[in-house]
Design a protein around this nucleic acid. Structure first.
Lengths: 342, 342
DNA sequence: TACAAGTTCTGTACCGGTCAAGAAACCAGG
DNA sequence: CCTGGTTTCTTGACCGGTACAGAACTTGTA
């Protein structure tokens, strides 16, 4: 009966089964559980399927029947541009995707809702999700909770019952601050994220670490705040910080901000590290890409991504997943030096 | 009967319906088509659902019943690291995700297969896919075809029946080459991707544009090849190019390579643009981030992403989608200058 | 030779929704 | 009071598979 091969009507498991003359279940097994039928019959079924233009079990139907989709969500806050255009986030996403693939899972980006009634965190089929520095009260996080999906939190706290992968930012920040103190700096500036990120753990913890350590030496930092985007914002904030205060060193939320401070300093005729010391954070690409190479606090973002993806995969596989706090390490390069002579 | 609110047994549409005393379909409408029932009843249903801990229709089941998942795939080649850690790709992905969200769609990254039998392009439920510079013969592309999914090709050719969003790289490359010729350069080097990317349209077209234009003036370029990763590869290739030839200018596949050439030149005691002219491509962040600012060929990656996502969304919505070839524009900055005196 | 232990394949019961058409109640106009 | 158009809710079929418990045949083995 079957003719051309590429057909007009929809080709389903059933149609292949009818054509071969076996039960639907057997065809299903031919695709999904090869050990359940004879090699001979299986090949016959696969050949017929090929001829009929059947491309294998429909993923959506399979997802419903099996109860899992083969894809996990990644919940990000803010505009995607922030996540993808930032070196550190991008590296994290890449690491997550790599590890997930290795575990047999795809990655679905659960974008924050925009205009209409479509809310990925509520409406897209995923087996679980990674929550990356999101507001715990945001719609996305709340819906994932309602759906009772397995979740792994990254760089944030979602409660003690949620597996969490984090970085010891407080220690990292402390090390950076102590480094400046050791070099003799006492008038120290800080370039952090705006209040809007007050609860964002990285921002909060780094600020905390700096403040604690500086306070222990009786230093009260001059705090300037800015946003990740637009990129020009950091430069403006840095310029203002340098113009309005007489700090001899600046601790920055990340390496990009550190570069902005260096650029701003240069524009004001001050050189780094001669006239001003600058400490970055992350040890991302830009830390070593420019001149001078940045003194910064290194965190292993790729490992963070691997661990997070692995933990979620474990959870989905019914295995236990443990939380981790990754260490940080001060890397001293060329952007910091002793206090300039008065 | 219902007690605590958070229940043990699975809560389905049916259980909510039973509790309220209406048909299952009515509950479905309460969530998916509010205009199909009285406001009063709808509120009662929603309240009951809330109390029972029902978080709305199951996405997987809905996907099967409706025939669409609400998510589209993005097929990338090579390791994800290449896609996400490259500024240009990252910007593209961000633009795609932004536009998709606006259109009520989520984005699923269809990673290339690794070890086991899991192949996202075949096994993950999506409504359509974006194919971004992939080998047309790769498993991923082939499976998307078998599944007869709506597809939009980006920066590559998948046949005339496939909607394609591309960039006029040939013209862009021509402009870059002509610029060097106009400055008087005759010994010109080229830093392209390795043969493995021979069929990659951007690489192919840029090479073509350079060659054509240079040939028209009787110039045969010195071709060096390298890979995107590891990043150090470009620096090595650039160094070798400069050491083994006496080119006075180099045309680069992208801005990152251009920076590598400049760094290599500096290490060899040659300054840009005094001793050597360098032309980048893309006008990405690194083009203006360092010194000197790069003369480069600008392409609008964000628009490319918006167009691609929009075209796919149109296709899924049953609308026609048209192909586009985006223009390029030579941006002359500080990395090119006249031929140095002999 | 006969019984426990594989293989192979089949039946039936879901998975949790949505669609399209129909029935019941409601309302206005003639 | 009857007719036709709405609004509101229900009915049955279907989306395209998978899980699990047998049934029918082979085998190994005592």
């Amino acid at each position: 009966m079957s003719d051309t091969g590429v057909d007009m009507a929809k080709v389903t498991l059933q149609s292949v089964a009818d054509e071969v003359g076996v039960s639907r279940m057997t065809v299903s097994n031919a695709f999904s559980r090869p050990d359940q039928l004879s090699k001979d019959l299986r090949e016959r079924i696969l050949a017929t399927a090929e001829r009929l233009g059947y491309s294998g079990p429909d993923p959506a139907a399979r997802a419903l029947a099996r109860g899992r989709t083969g894809s996990v969500g990644l919940l990000l806050n803010g505009p995607l541009s922030e996540a993808f255009e930032d070196d550190v986030s991008a590296e994290f996403v890449a690491a997550v995707a790599d590890e997930l693939t290795r575990r047999g899972l795809a990655l679905t980006v659960l974008t924050p809702p925009q205009d209409d009634g479509f809310l990925p965190a509520r409406d897209v089929a995923v087996d679980g999700a990674l929550v990356y520095t999101c507001d715990p009260d945001s719609a996305g996080v709340v819906w994932l909770g309602r759906r009772k999906l397995p979740v792994v939190a990254v760089d944030q706290d979602l409660g003690s019952d949620v597996t969490t992968i984090g970085v010891d930012d407080v220690s990292g920040a402390r090390a950076g601050a102590q480094h400046l103190l050791d070099l003799g700096h006492r008038r120290i500036g800080v370039l952090a994220l705006t209040e809007q990120y007050a609860l964002d753990p990285p921002n909060r913890d780094r600020l905390l670490g700096w403040r604690e350590t500086l306070a222990a030496s009786g230093v009260e930092p001059v705090v300037a705040r800015t946003t990740l985007l637009p990129r020009s914002a950091a430069l403006e904030a840095a310029t203002e910080l340098l113009e309005s205060s007489d700090v001899t060193a600046v601790l920055c939320f990340d390496d990009v901000f550190a570069r902005a401070v260096i650029t701003a300093a240069a524009a004001l005729g001050r050189s780094v590290p001669g006239d001003l010391s600058v400490v970055g954070y992350d040890d991302s690409r830009v830390a070593t890409a420019g001149v001078p190479a940045l003194t910064t606090v290194r965190q292993d973002v790729t490992t963070k991504g691997h661990l997070a993806a692995g933990a979620l995969a474990d959870l989905l596989g019914g295995r236990a997943a443990s939380s981790h706090t990754l260490p940080t390490e001060l890397v001293v390069r060329d952007s910091t030096g002793p206090v300039p002579a008065p």
